[in-house]
Amino acid sequence: MIRQKTDVSFSISLLEPALNVLKKYLNDDEKYSPVFPVLWNQKMNDYLKVIQELAGIGKNLTTHLCQA
């Protein structure tokens, strides 16, 4: 790849498990599209609710919840 600001080329070494995940989602036809699926907040909140229940967390987890 080439850095946008400096036009200097660079590469990133990845372990085999990470490469396998990338190969599953990578689409060479769409060079500038996201590699991984983009989840809507509502869908992410649905997943967080499942995690909350499985972990026995009493507070409702949402994408907007954070601790400083």
Rank of each mutant, 00 (worst) to 15 (best):
M1L: 08
I2C: 09
I2D: 11
I2G: 09
R3H: 06
R3F: 01
R3M: 01
Q4T: 15
K5Y: 13
T6V: 06
T6D: 05
D7W: 12
V8P: 00
V8L: 06
V8W: 04
S9P: 10
F10H: 15
F10T: 11
F10D: 12
I12Q: 02
I12H: 06
S13D: 11
S13N: 09
S13K: 13
L14S: 03
L14E: 00
L14D: 03
L15F: 13
E16M: 06
E16K: 14
E16T: 12
P17K: 04
P17H: 00
A18P: 07
L19G: 11
L19H: 05
N20V: 00
V21C: 01
V21G: 03
L22N: 05
K23F: 09
K24L: 08
Y25P: 03
Y25M: 00
L26I: 07
N27V: 02
N27R: 02
N27L: 09
D29G: 13
D29H: 09
E30N: 08
K31Y: 12
K31P: 05
K31A: 14
Y32D: 14
Y32Q: 13
S33K: 09
S33D: 07
S33F: 05
P34C: 00
P34L: 02
P34G: 00
V35S: 01
F36C: 07
F36S: 06
P37G: 01
V38A: 10
L39D: 03
W40A: 14
W40P: 06
N41Q: 12
Q42V: 14
Q42N: 13
Q42M: 11
Q42K: 09
K43H: 06
K43G: 03
K43N: 11
K43W: 07
M44N: 02
M44F: 04
D46H: 07
D46Q: 12
L48Q: 02
L48G: 02
L48S: 04
L48P: 00
L48V: 07
K49C: 10
K49D: 04
V50G: 08
V50N: 10
V50C: 05
V50W: 14
I51Y: 03
I51W: 10
I51A: 05
Q52G: 07
Q52E: 14
E53H: 13
E53Y: 10
E53F: 08
L54R: 03
L54Y: 06
A55K: 05
A55Y: 12
G56I: 03
G56M: 01
G58D: 11
G58S: 11
K59R: 14
K59G: 05
N60A: 06
N60G: 07
T62E: 00
T62L: 00
T63E: 02
H64M: 07
H64F: 04
H64C: 04
L65P: 06
C66F: 13
Q67L: 15
Q67T: 15
Q67S: 14
Q67Y: 11
A68L: 14
A68C: 10
